[in-house]
C-alpha cells in the first residue's frame, strides 16, 4: 500500500452522551499507522470533545480526552476547529486543550497542532479530501 490519500475525520458530536467520539478517536489512532495524509476537523458539537478540564470520574464514564494529547506522537498534527461552531457555543480556543507536536524537520521544536478555521475553510478541507470518515 504505497498510495497516500487525504483522509478527513469529521467530528460533529459531543463526548460521553454517545460513544461515537471515543470510537472515532480509536480509528484515528489505528489509522495513524497507515502513513496517510490525515486531518481532523472538529465542528458543531464536536468542538466539545477538545474541551479542557474534562473530569468524568464521578460520572463513571471513561475520560478519553487525555488521549488527544498523544495524537502529536502519531504524526497527527492537523487539527482544525471551526470558529463558527465555537462562537455559537460561547467558547474560544482558550477553552480547548492546547494540542502540540514535535516538528522533526525543525529540530523537534514543539508546535501547536490546533488550527482555528472558518466555515469556508472547512468546506475547502472537505472538498480536498479523498476519504471522509464522519463520526
Amino acid at each position: 500500500m504505497s498510495d497516500i490519500k487525504k483522509f478527513l475525520y469529521v467530528n460533529r458530536r459531543a463526548p460521553y452522551g454517545t460513544v461515537y467520539a471515543l470510537e472515532s478517536l480509536e480509528v484515528v489512532l489505528i489509522g495513524a499507522a497507515f502513513d496517510q495524509d490525515v486531518s481532523l476537523v472538529f465542528m458543531d458539537d464536536g468542538v466539545f470533545q477538545l474541551k479542557k478540564d474534562q473530569n468524568s470520574e464521578a460520572s463513571g464514564m471513561k475520560n478519553f480526552s487525555p488521549t488527544f494529547n498523544a495524537l502529536g506522537d502519531y504524526d497527527v498534527n492537523k487539527i482544525y476547529v471551526e470558529k463558527e461552531s465555537l462562537e455559537a457555543r460561547g467558547m474560544t480556543m482558550d477553552d480547548l486543550m492546547a494540542l502540540t507536536y514535535e516538528d522533526e524537520d525543525d529540530d523537534w521544536a514543539e508546535k501547536s497542532s490546533m488550527h482555528l478555521v472558518s466555515a469556508d475553510e472547512v468546506r475547502d478541507l472537505m472538498e480536498e479530501s479523498e476519504v471522509v470518515l464522519s463520526f
Binding site: 469529521v10 460533529r12 472538498e127 464522519s134 463520526f135
Partner: peptide, 17 residues
C-alpha cells in the same frame, strides 16, 4: 441505482451522520 451513480460519478462522498 441512481444513488450508486451519484457516488460513483462524483468526486467524493461525505455522510452527515
Amino acid at each position: 441505482p441512481d444513488f450508486v451513480d451519484l457516488v460513483a460519478n462524483g468526486d467524493g462522498v461525505q455522510s452527515w451522520v
